[in-house]
Amino acid sequence: MVRMILRRLGVAAITFTLASVLIFLLVDLAPGDPAKLLAERRYGANTTVENVAQVRSELGLDRSAAERYLSWIGHALRGDFGNSFQNGRLVAQDLTEKVGVTVILILCAAVFALLLGVLLAGLGAWRPGGWIDRATRGVAMAGVSVPMFFLGPLLLLAFALKSPLFPAIGESGPASWVLPAVTLGCSSAAIFAIVTRVLVEEAMTQQYVITSRSVGALPGAVLVRDVLPNIAPQAVTVFLTQVGFTLLPGTTIVETIFAWPGIGDYFLRGLLFRDFPVMQAVLLLFVVVLIVLNLMADLVQGVLDPRVRRSLRKGTT
C-alpha cells in the first residue's frame, strides 16, 4: 500500500511538472499582449511604443520564457503566484479570499449531482424496462443536453425573478446556493445517473446475482447486497471524474451567471485582461485539484474492492 501510494505520488509529480509547463506556455502563447493592454490603460490613446516596452520590462515580460517559467514555478511552489498585472494585488491573497465560495459551490453541486443521480438510477433499476426506467432515462438525457449557460439564466428567470424563491445573484447563505448548485450539477447528475444505471444493468446479468436469487434473495436485497458493492468502485470513479472535469471548470460559467465572487469568476476576469499570473495560478490550482481527485479515485478502488486491496497488500511485501 505504501509503495503504491509512493508510486502514485511520483506519477502525480511528473503530471504536475508537465502540466505546469503546458499552462505556462499556453498562457504565454495566447493571443493578446498584457503589456500593451496595461500601457493603454495607463497612458490612454497616445500610448507610445516606448511606454509599452517600459511596462513590459516592469512586468518582467522582457526576459526569456525559460527564465520566466523557472522563476514563476519556483515562487508558485512556495505559495507566491506573483502580483496581478491589472491592479498589482497579490494573486495568492486573492485566491485565498475567493476559494471559499467556489468550494461551497462545487460541494453543493456535487451533493446535488450525487443525490439526483442515485435517485434517477435507482428508480430506473427498480423495474428495468418499465415506464419509470424509460422516463428517468429521458430526464437524464435531457439533463446531459442542457448547457449551463442556458440552464442558469432559465433558473434565474423562473425561480429568482418570476417567483422570487431564491436570491438572484451573489453569495448570501444557503438559499443563494440552490440555483447555482443545480445549474452546475445538473449535467453531472444526469451523466452519473446514466452511467450508474448501465453499471447496475450489467451487474444484474452477472452469475452472482443468479446465485443470490437461487438461495431465495428478493430483488431489493440483491440490489443492495450484491449489485451496489460491485458497482461502487466504478461509480465513485465516475463521480470524482465528474467533479474534476465538469464541476471544476463549470464554475467559470456559473459564477459569472450568478455573480459569485469565486475562483471561476476570478479566472474569467484575468483571462479577459491577459492577466498572466492570475490565469496561471488558477489553472495550476485546477491541475492540483484534478491530481488529488485522481489519487482519491485510486485509493477508493483499494478500499472498496477486496481484489485490488489484496494486490496492494501483496505489493508491499
Binding site: Q207, Y208, I210, T211, S212, S214, V215, D226, L304, R307
Partner: peptide
C-alpha cells in the same frame, strides 16, 4: 429457493459475489 431447492452452478469463480 434455498429452502426446498438448492442449486450448484457451473462456474464457481463467478458464482460468488467477488466483493
Amino acid at each position: 429457493l434455498g429452502s426446498d431447492v438448492g442449486v450448484i452452478f457451473q462456474d464457481p469463480l463467478t458464482a460468488f459475489n467477488p466483493m
